[in-house]
């Protein structure tokens, strides 16, 4: 899977670096001073690199935990995100990471202890308030878990800090490490879904809907709280039929008691990212979708956006109480 690993000199002897390198004895190892030398260099092609992405092991120095936008909150006033990893194993055509980063290589920041320290500091600053942490903005939280040991390192912190809540956002079925341990109440495993036909068209290398749903059900059965993320909602002429089928499939099987939250939002991207993706994938129909530009973002025209959000909201709220529902009503 990983044939090339770049290693920042500074963390070459970090125990997590050594453990990961042990897993890939045949990979070519290349040392670098700072990951940006490889990752941020211009004149590289994200689309080509996606074919055989390398792993970059690095240290995150600053900006480890950052405030997250209120539109993405799932019930708390204080929301922060952190990225122990940049980029994703999967290849979803709508993903903003393709527009955000120059390179498709996976960057893993191995200094988890510094992330945890910063999270602890934030909790200490906000005495007695609930603080939500989101881990899946710049990567899939679980897809590389067997390699990164992310959950086994971060969950004990959650266990000892009940005021904190961690959202692991994923399309992965890598849930073994979670099933091996007792569930933690303040951890939500949030699965993203689009209807089957749309997923087959746009979500490459991703486990299919049935496998994802099974992983979700296995976690619920083990007592874990799960989240459902219908974001981005993708428009197609039969979206109503396709989303109805998806909702029926999911809501007929899940346990609403162990469903922490459901969120949804229409497909939208910052204009720069959209234009970059359009150039990378000129033959991709998604970028020929009905579109409108507002406040430097590109998304569906308001009419389509509202119609889809209302339609989905109507069905979802029949299945779960309003306090668990978090629609993202950004303009685009």
């Amino acid at each position: 899977m990983i044939s090339t690993i770049y290693i920042e000199e500074e963390i070459a002897n970090h125990p997590r670096t050594l453990a990961i390198l042990k897993r890939f004895p045949d990979a070519t190892k290349i040392s670098c001073q700072r990951y940006g030398e490889v990752f941020n260099s211009k004149s590289q092609n994200f689309r080509l690199q996606k074919k055989q992405a390398a792993l970059i092991l690095a240290r995150k120095h600053k900006g480890l935990v950052l405030p997250s936008p209120k539109e993405y909150a799932i019930g708390a006033e204080l929301n922060y995100y952190f990225s122990h990893m940049l980029n994703c194993l999967y290849d979803c055509r709508y993903c903003f990471l393709q527009g955000k980063f120059q390179s498709a290589h996976y960057v893993l920041f191995v200094n988890y202890e510094d992330f945890i320290e910063e999270m602890q500091l934030l909790l200490n600053q906000h005495d007695e308030e609930a603080v939500h942490f989101f881990s899946g903005y710049d990567c899939d939280s679980l897809a590389l878990d067997p390699v990164t040991d992310f959950t086994s390192e971060f969950l004990p912190f959650l266990e000892s800090n009940p005021r904190a809540l961690l959202e692991l956002r994923t399309k992965s079925t890598q849930i073994r490490s979670l099933l091996k341990r007792e569930p933690i109440k303040n951890c939500v495993i949030a699965f993203s879904f689009t209807p089957d036909k749309i997923a087959r068209t746009l979500e490459h290398k991703v486990p299919d809907i049935n496998k994802r749903l099974q992983a979700l059900l296995d976690l619920q059965e083990a007592g874990w709280q799960i989240g459902l993320r219908f974001d981005p909602l993708i428009y197609t002429k039969d979206y109503a039929k396709e989303y109805s089928e998806l909702f029926n499939e999911i809501f007929s099987k899940i346990n609403p008691e162990l469903t922490h939250s459901i969120s949804l939002g229409g497909f939208r991207l910052p204009k720069d990212y959209f234009r970059k993706l359009e150039k990378l994938y000129p033959d991709e129909k998604l970028f020929a979708s009905p579109q409108a530009e507002e406040k430097n973002n590109i998304g569906y025209p308001a009419e389509i956006r509202h119609e889809m959000l209302d339609f989905c909201e109507n069905i979802i709220t029949q299945h779960i109480p309003a306090e668990k529902f978090f629609p993202c009503h950004e303009t685009i």
């Binding site: 044939s3 090339t4 770049y6 070519t28 290349i30 040392s31 670098c32 001073q33 030398e37 490889v38 260099s41 590289q44 080509l48 690199q49 074919k51 055989q52 992405a53 390398a54």
Partner: peptide, 20 residues
């Protein structure tokens, strides 16, 4: 070559070997 360093000023480049 997977990494090129110019000995004069230590500037480094990383040719991207994304094929076998």
């Amino acid at each position: 070559v997977n990494k090129i360093t110019d000995n004069h000023d230590n500037t480094t480049w990383y040719p991207q070997i994304i094929f076998n």
